[in-house]
Design a protein around this nucleic acid. Structure first.
Lengths: 342, 342
DNA sequence: GGTCTGTGCGGGAGCGCTCTCACAGTGGCA
DNA sequence: TGCCACTGTGAGAGCGCTCCCGCACAGACC
């Protein structure tokens, strides 16, 4: 143990009580906004708090309340690129904004590898947080199990791989992808490729399934050589598009499973001398800010982020409050946003 | 207070002690790796821990040790774009990696506005963390003061605006910028513009100062119309470059104060029909991954991130351990990386 | 045998808080 | 006057842990 005695000790409830001339219990009542306190006592306590610059010790409080009033948003991504994905940024900002009006704190936890995931699992189980929102779950991530086993309130952003009983909020990835490819079919394209997300992520899997379903529904064949796996990043989109063009120079449309990848695809298409949408039509997914800005503006599938983030926190809070309840989940509708690229 | 009684209670030290047939103190010794425990007792405790799936309650421990073993990395940025800046991602990853070998936890805290900064200040003062690394400090941010006043161990990433006694780690922004512009001068350019960072951030201010110093040292005039303020984002770089070209179509070189902005500048130059480096030479700052990848590859100033992130954590840990010591700071050297753009 | 050092261990206090319970005081009502 | 709320307050227990202190016992040494 290191010497921390020289750090200025912070005042305690007792000291406030002595200064205010009341009991510890009364100070606690004032701090916790209990109604049964006389105005005089309340005023005395408030001025003592101000004078001593008292801040309650959360450890002591949490020890008895079993609550920390903080929730964790876990970014579970080996790739550093997480941060550059506008989807993450939106979720983080949205959850943060939803919580701003409450007295709940939000902490972000990132895991690059399994070791860090274990560390996060421990962190949560040790009682640092009341609940967890888990993002970017890959098929082999141990974290959902660790947290669920520990009985930690948990909401996943994106449905789980297996049909486990865990709460989640997801966009209708399959339906959205189906609509995207159906749009490409309806606008007369015949060789429709796709750049998928990572196939160890459920969003990648579902969007590919939707794409294939649209093809099948229209009586088309599914051609494996017209499917290239990307990683939800712009660079990944460039590479996947180059690979698709090499495999089938005649392709006339691509459904790209995320907007950052679509921006990459646009770049690769331009570099290959293809015009969009004349030679190749492109539909993205996300409706990220970049979609409206890029050249040409991207036709894309909008995720209802403004619905999803409040839902994410709401579902989690409900689990934290009422413990017995079964975990509830939601799937949010997507919609096609037509711009110039398809 | 809500009913949490239905949540499975986690086992306590006492229960482990009973099961292992030893005292609470012995269990504590085992958990904390104290040497004075007999092998038999240790084994009994370990198996009891495993059987009960015991995890120490950190609140209880912290209450007595006054340590939480977690440090916060605060991203203090109104702009959502924070996340897309590779500089942030690198720092986060670096600090996280440095801490991976320790039993310290890292939490990320983001503040979009002053209200959230206050919330973070409260969070820290309540004793959730042992120390704070503060990133992206703007001139009017209250957080440094809040934390410093609370006696919270603190290291800033980037030097503070005033000459306060706070620990920081910074790149030699002024020197780097000076080298960049000196390079542009040495390679025969005459109308050298600059896209600055936000001028409410010290990195923005220092890089502009370095640019001007190089100009002055070479006997050149500083032309305000050749300075455009950016915001460290790619879009900001596009806009600033467009504005510079409008103001002086004859400019033949730009020092851009960050690589993402330089990528934007490259795009704007291409859109305006300028060749790089033949018509306009471009030097960036950061040596982000994108610098090597873009077209043409970017000549830029490398920040020694591999030095900076361990230093950041080291300086903070030193403050946390040895409390009396004066806060120490470091400035890391930068270097010019020559590629094709200048 | 007596004293001493060292080791392993347990008892117990206490970290700062919340929360139950008891109690004094006040006012309403029969 | 007696009984009953009801309100404001304080005493005290206890959350799960760490850590100081003291005890029992073993072995070394005189």
């Amino acid at each position: 143990m290191t010497d921390i005695s020289t750090r200025p000790a912070s005042p305690t409830l007792d000291e406030v009580a002595v200064l205010a001339g009341v009991s510890r219990a009364t100070v606690s009542r004032v701090v916790n906004d209990s109604p049964r306190v006389s105005p005089e006592a309340r005023a005395a306590v408030h001025s003592a708090i101000a004078e001593l610059r008292y801040v309650p010790n959360r450890m002591a409080r949490s020890l008895v309340t079993r609550r920390t009033d903080t929730i964790a948003l876990v970014l579970n991504e080996p790739n550093t690129q997480v941060f550059s994905d506008p989807f993450f940024a939106s979720i983080v900002r949205g959850v943060s904004a939803t919580l701003a009006d409450t007295d709940l704190n939000l902490v972000l936890l990132t895991a690059q590898d399994e070791r860090e995931q274990q560390k996060i699992g421990r962190y949560a189980r040790q009682g640092h947080v009341d609940g967890v929102i888990l993002m970017s779950v890959h098929s082999n991530d141990p974290l959902p199990d660790i947290l669920a086993d520990a009985g930690m309130p948990l909401v996943m952003c994106g449905r789980p791989f297996d049909d486990r009983a865990v709460a989640y909020v997801d966009a209708d990835n399959r339906g959205g992808a189906e609509a995207a490819t159906a749009h490409l079919i309806a606008t007369g394209h015949s060789r429709i490729a796709t750049i998928t997300g990572p196939l160890d992520m459920i969003a990648g899997v579902d969007r590919l399934a939707g794409h294939r379903a649209a093809l099948t529904a229209a009586g088309r064949q599914v051609h494996p050589e017209l499917e290239a796996e990307g990683d939800f990043t712009e660079v990944g989109g460039v590479r996947a598009m180059e690979s698709l063009l090499a495999r089938d120079p005649e392709l006339d449309a691509v459904f790209v499973a995320s907007d950052p990848m679509a921006v990459g695809a646009l770049r690769a298409l331009r570099a290959a001398g293809r015009r969009v949408p004349e030679d190749v039509a492109v539909v993205g997914f996300d409706d990220a800010a970049v979609a409206a800005r890029c050249d040409p503006p991207l036709t894309t599938i909008a995720q209802p982020l403004t619905d999803m983030t409040p839902l994410l926190t709401e579902l989690l809070l409900r689990q934290i409050e009422g413990v017995g309840e079964p975990a509830e989940s939601r799937v949010c509708h997507t919609s096609l946003v037509r711009r110039a690229s398809a």
